[in-house]
Amino acid sequence: MSMRKSLNKAVIYGILAVLAALMMYPLIFTFMSVFMTAPEMNQYPPKLFPSSLYLGGLQSVLELIPLDRFVINSFVMSGIIMIGQVITAAMAAYAFSYIQFPGKNAWFAIFLSTMMIPWEVTIIPNYLTIKSWGWMDSYQGLTVPFLASAFGVFLLRQFFLQLPKELFEAAKIDGCGHIRHFITIVLPLARPGLASLGVYVFLTNWNMYLWPLLITNSVEMRTVQIGISMLQFEEYTAWNIVLCGVALVLLPSLLLLVFGLRQLARGITAGAVKG
């Protein structure tokens, strides 16, 4: 029995190790290439490990493209969208969970149905709208269409409904109105929910591709995702430099994953997810 058990254990560890190696390989390849020189990268047979901790590639990529500018753009864009979505979603979620108003159920159903509208249907008119407002190549063009999401409303509503009802009753007796109740009681208590939504929204928008591709033309307004993919098409760029760029772009997301995995997992598993 214990023989079989330890054999089982060994098999599980074996499969997991192989799977982990396969899944991690593309990333290991990327981070190994960061430290390779251009000739090392072009060698055949390809080298698996760099011969030294060469940092010239990182330097070259920063000289070749304004990566710092791209990172700032992505940070500002994702940050604005994150803050905006958390605020609008928290307000709407509060209305749906605590306030009695006519048409509440109908509005809730309408909000629910907006999750079914895929972005392809809205992207052409939204592109034309942003263009006609003269918002191309601007932060407002990048962010304003995304400042509200039905997904966020649902996620936070779930959190708000789980808060103890007695707290609100007690506050009401003390003469506490909705606005004060929202700001001083509900928001602080729902912090884990706000964090889940925040991390999730930040990462999704940090990784956004099609919208920034359509909305930005100038180099100054490019986000990291567009900047890094443009690097690929510069014909004479050495691979090690491109991969240095990729690694630098991946780093913030990886850090976010290390510190916010639990919040992120909660956001993802909260229900339907829009990609």
Binding site: L19, A20, M23, M24, P26, L27, F29, T30, L203, W206, N207, Y209, Q225, I226, I228, S229, L231, Q232, V242, L243, V246, V249, L250, S253, L254, L256, L257, L261, L264, A265
Partner: peptide, 16 residues
């Protein structure tokens, strides 16, 4: 380790 691909974006993954 198995959660790490969450950090990927479509452009970084494609370039790699």
């Amino acid at each position: 380790i198995f959660s790490v691909p969450l950090a990927l974006s479509v452009s970084t993954a494609s370039v790699i």
